[in-house]
Nucleic acid binder design. Structure first.
Length: 279
DNA sequence: CACCATGTTCCTTG
DNA sequence: CCAAGGAACATGGT
């Protein structure tokens, strides 16, 4: 479950557990996910290095480390659609879809990904061209307006473009448009300044609330006391779902106006909206 | 069996 | 050049 809020919650979980840890060995079980770096280069860069901190850029996690020779290196992680990352004591059997394993001086870091759309590599180039973080000073209503203009693309489709604003995905694009009361099918260039400002604000609000939910939800990082962590656990999903106003609620009543939520398809992705609120 | 899925990239078709 | 559509990736859930 990886859009910006989920990745941020994961970052806050991972950082204190990885900070100061030394990587003893790197095990790649699904070579696909370490492209384009490749297993050999990944092992060479990571083995013996210490984790300094975990940052986030859009939906990417940045694992900043210091190698034994004192260089700073950054490994980039992306969860794709189904990725999970967590730290555990390193005793249990490996999950079926383990993609990458980092054996640490204390415990181990696991990256599981059934669909293998996620990545764990050393290529910082994937961050180029990414739009501003939603809370950076660079991201203003004017910036959003400039990135919605000059195209006839629907505003919802524009929000999925990571160069517009980093981290918004299919769920929160629908949620933000509903929050702002804007029809997802409207061409982005057609929004007036007031609507654009409203949408800008709604994006922040919706993402902020989702992060709060993630932190407050019963994600149970301790997993019953042994340090196991299953991001996207049933408890986490249910708690998060309560806050979704339209996503995956086709045919149900709009929580604001009572109208019926509808599902449409834009750019081959589902969009959920309320015709009453988003006219 | 059919269809759907939180992401991204690439290719084809207007 | 632009936008839309589809496929691909690989697997699981309903």
């Amino acid at each position: 479950m990886p859009e910006l809020p989920e990745v941020e919650v994961l970052r806050r979980y991972l950082e204190p557990r990885l900070q100061g840890r030394r990587i003893v060995e790197v095990e790649v079980r699904r070579p696909r996910v370490v492209r384009p770096t490749g297993e050999a280069a990944l092992r060479e860069a990571l083995v013996g290095a210490c984790l300094r901190r975990v940052d986030r850029r859009g939906k990417h996690l940045l694992f900043v480390l210091r190698t034994s020779s004192g260089c700073e290196r950054t490994a980039v992680g992306h969860l794709g659609m189904t990725g999970r990352m967590y730290v555990d004591p390193g005793k249990g059997a490996l999950p079926r879809h383990t993609a990458v394993l980092l054996h640490l001086d204390q415990g181990r870091f696991l990256f599981e990904d059934p669909r293998q759309f996620g990545r764990f590599h050393l290529e910082p180039g994937v961050l180029e061209g990414m739009g501003p973080e939603p809370w950076s000073q660079d991201w203003t209503p004017d910036h959003l307006r400039s990135r919605l203009s000059g195209t006839r693309q629907a505003v919802k489709t524009r929000l999925l473009d990571q160069s517009v604003v980093a981290g918004v995905g299919n769920i929160y694009a629908s949620e933000a448009l509903h929050h702002a009361g804007i029809d997802p099918a409207r061409p982005g260039s057609q929004l007036d300044p007031a609507e654009t400002a409203r949408l800008w604000h709604s994006i922040r609000t919706v993402l902020e609330r989702a992060i709060e939910d993630g932190l407050g939800a019963n994600l149970d990082f301790a997993g019953g006391g042994d340090g196991l962590f299953y991001f996207g656990s049933a408890a986490g999903r249910e708690a998060g779902a309560e806050r979704l106003q339209v996503y995956d609620r086709a045919g149900k009543a709009c929580l604001r106006c009572g109208g019926t939520i509808e599902r449409t398809v834009q750019a081959a992705r589902s969009t959920f909206s309320c015709p009453g609120c988003q006219g």
